[in-house]
Nucleic acid binder design. Sequence first.
RNA 1: GCUCACAUGGCUCAGAGGUAGAGCACUUCCUUGGUAAGGAAGAGGUCCCGGGUUCAAUUCCCGGUGUGAGCUCCA
Length: 602
Amino acid sequence: MDTIAIKYNDEIVDLQTAAAKGIDGEAIVLDNSDAALEVLRHSTAHLMAQAIKLLYPDAQFFVGPVVKEGFYYDFRVSEEIGEGDLKRIEKQMLALAKKKYVIERYEISKGEAKKKFANDPLKLAVMERIPDERVSIYKQGDFEDLCRGPHLPSVQAIRFFKLTKIAGAYLGGDSSNEMLTRIYGIAFADKASLKAHLEMLAEAEKRDHRKIGAQMKLFAFREEVGAGFPIWLPAGARLRSRLEELLFKAHRKRGYEPVRGPEMLRSDLWKTSGHYQNYGENMYFTHIDDIEFGVKPMNCVGHIKVYEDELHSYRDLPIKYFEYGVVHRHEMTGALHGLFRVREFTQDDAHIFCTTEQIEAQIIEVVDFVDKIMKTFDFDYKMMISTKPEKAVGSDAVWEVSTQALKNAMDSNGLVYAIDEGGGAFYGPKIDIKITDAIGREWQCGTIQLDFNLPERFALEYNGEANDKIQPVMIHRAILGSFERFIGILTEHYAGEFPMFIAPTQVAIVPIAEPHNAYAKELADKLIDMGADSEIFSKNESLNKRIRTAEKGRVPMIIVLGDEEIENKTIAVRDRRNREQYNLSEAEFLTMIQQKINEVNF
RNA sequence: GCUCACAUGGCUCAGAGGUAGAGCACUUCCUUGGUAAGGAAGAGGUCCCGGGUUCAAUUCCCGGUGUGAGCUCCA
């Protein structure tokens, strides 16, 4: 395989630059490694720009970076470009690639560059952001672009790409600026990888929880209800309460106490907590008589009030309160998206009040809790520590101490994590849990946040050994994040094929004819007694039709009951996953269901 | 919040400046069927809301609401 760039001091340097500067390093060949793809995709973005320039001569280009999902280029054109034009641009790109243009690089001073691009305001805008005195220009054929690189040696290697999306994007991501046209694309080193990626995108579309949610009647949104307010349909509510029950037990086992705070609290409390000042724009307020109330966007304040209800001794710590806390947040309309982003949602929220010495053990315990749950659902996950954001309460010193405490807990237990600078919540640093679903997408769910600020603001305390007043540390944590979002993710993860322990309906019972209905009902009752939901398909429809309906409803197990079964007290089981059929005695069947339901506990 | 697009029975969608259709679902009847769609009949829509243009608007225009894609934001 040909070398396309080198690695020098951990940086990717293209061959053009390496030759100009006379440096050498480890070879990067054209494969699907991160480094190779970065170069390839960057050059593909340029090739796209070259093609666009040919097709739309008045196009002016802004920036065309490589991003996680491929690359894009922002540009300005007078003509309307639509989804249908992407094919045309792709064709032009392939034609250009066939010409095997060598990609040349040269440097000029910024002054010269400004002259060169004098009638290209977008390029001038790009230069405004570059601090360097000298800038590099890349040239392929008669197309030139201001660019930092790195690039391929030639456009020839660009073959397996696809333009995926066209959209508007604000210049510089600032909505007060003009909107440019943005085309997204993806490129790979070989055909199979491109194909696999495109199949993944198609699969993701098929798994869209909004679609499956409607098919399986899990939840719905209605215009008259309002944007961002989901309504839970019976099947969805069953699934959700299964999750809630499992999680309830898991919390109790770990020493958490269920508590409940009010939906809205007086604004004074939100001023004390800092939410009023830092989060107020996302909160809903109302008045009762003359007093202003804020609908809770988080559950911490309620839990703090529970904590304050009695005096605490160091002997009581850690104290762990949990609540399926319903919160309301004013999200921007454009951000709303199925169950993933709503305005009312329920967090599996908990707050741990502990001593400084207990922090590490508590963090580890929570991380272990997360591990257990995510493994149960077959999610891989990564952890990330987020540090102080721009808008924050509390002194730098406190932030430093608490951030360090998180790192220590992770380090001393050999846990791997990444750092997200400035990504913390306004009241403390956090560990985010990012899970990877069945088709490789990452989602942010759980979060563990360390908080020295709220205990300070509310002057929380406990009695120490010497009968002195000590301020506890507060750990906020959610594992699923929110039921809404998590169920949305689960739906896409399983493509609606929920495992038995979480499925809205565990068993579909199909009696062959009228006389078999009584046995069906008898079985359904036995199932309920052991905590399994079933649905009897006894409508006046053909047997085939009812089996088909059950299948389409994604019920994990279908049983058919007729004369034979009643006579022998057996069950004809049809496993939806592999469409296999087999017979069991009633006792065997019930034991099997019992096992499948009980095999999970966090 | 911004840009663009879309909005027709419960669902998926056709359709035209002269007040509407299909399939699925639903109801009733026939059929009592052994593992992915049996048959017949029927009911159901202020064509998202408000304003404007027009003799006439669900259809064209404006505003709102909702949905989608993207920016931004995030559980």
